[in-house]
Simulated scan of single mutants.
Amino acid sequence: MPLINPPESTPTLRVSHLHSRAHGFRIFIQPDGNKVKVDAVDGTSVMKAAIASGVRGIIGECGGDLSCASCHVFVVKEWFDLLGPIGAFEDEMLDATSEDRTDCSRLSCQIVVTPSLEGLTLTVPASQR
């Protein structure tokens, strides 16, 4: 049986916008101060949710394989300790970011969406490698 292409008017939903599977939201503060609110599915990475939602400045060249550091974010201090420790490889990769790392730097591919992170607020650096 041949495959039938859906009509062009069929809406395409991105996983990050399926509210029945999404849990809460994450806020990305752009370098210009604008805030972008992103719904995210539990168990996915914050990087993937950001890319699926078109957040400017989150590139994720490696697709989340922890080999490019182009998903660097600055976690708002109140949230940082809730993320758990930084792994050795992530720590090493944070030394290769375009913008200098801070005490609140993380790679968003290593932050997994959970219900306890609803409202997580991150600042996107002005540049990525």
Results as ranks from 00 to 15, higher is better:
S127Q: 13
V75P: 01
G57A: 04
G64F: 09
P125S: 00
L13P: 04
F25L: 15
T121W: 00
S116D: 07
V46K: 00
P31R: 05
L18K: 13
I51N: 00
N34W: 03
I27P: 05
S105G: 01
E90L: 07
G57D: 07
S98A: 15
H17R: 11
K48T: 13
G87R: 07
F74C: 10
H72A: 04
G84L: 09
L120D: 06
A126S: 11
K48H: 13
Q30F: 04
Q30D: 08
Q110K: 06
M1I: 08
V73G: 07
C68H: 05
P2T: 12
P6Y: 09
S127L: 10
D100N: 11
L13G: 08
H17W: 00
S70N: 09
N5M: 09
G54C: 06
E99F: 03
D42A: 15
I86A: 05
S105V: 01
D81W: 00
S45H: 09
L83E: 03
I29R: 07
F25A: 15
E92N: 12
K48G: 09
A126C: 04
A40N: 02
G43T: 05
T97S: 13
L66W: 03
P115L: 04
S67F: 03
V124R: 00
T12E: 10
Q128S: 10
K77P: 09
P11C: 12
E99G: 11
D100Y: 05
G87E: 13
H19Q: 11
G64H: 08
C109W: 01
D81K: 00
S45I: 08
R14P: 14
P85G: 14
L3P: 03
D81R: 02
A22L: 02
E61D: 15
S98L: 07
F89L: 15
H17F: 03
N34V: 12
E90W: 02
D81P: 00
K77D: 15
L122P: 02
S20Y: 10
L66F: 04
S9N: 15
L94D: 11
F28W: 01
L122S: 04
V76L: 08
V75S: 05
C109D: 11
K37R: 13
L18M: 14
W79P: 01
A126W: 01
G24Q: 14
F74L: 14
P6I: 12
G43C: 10
H17N: 14
F74N: 11
Q30W: 03
L117A: 06
E92Y: 12
K48Y: 11
V55R: 00
E92F: 11
T44G: 04
R56H: 07
G54H: 08
M47C: 08
W79C: 06
I58V: 09
G33V: 15
L117E: 13
I86E: 08
R129S: 11
D42E: 14
V112S: 08
T102P: 06
D100T: 09
A52K: 10
W79S: 07
S67Y: 07
V76F: 02
V15C: 13
L18R: 13
C104T: 15
L122K: 04
G119Q: 10
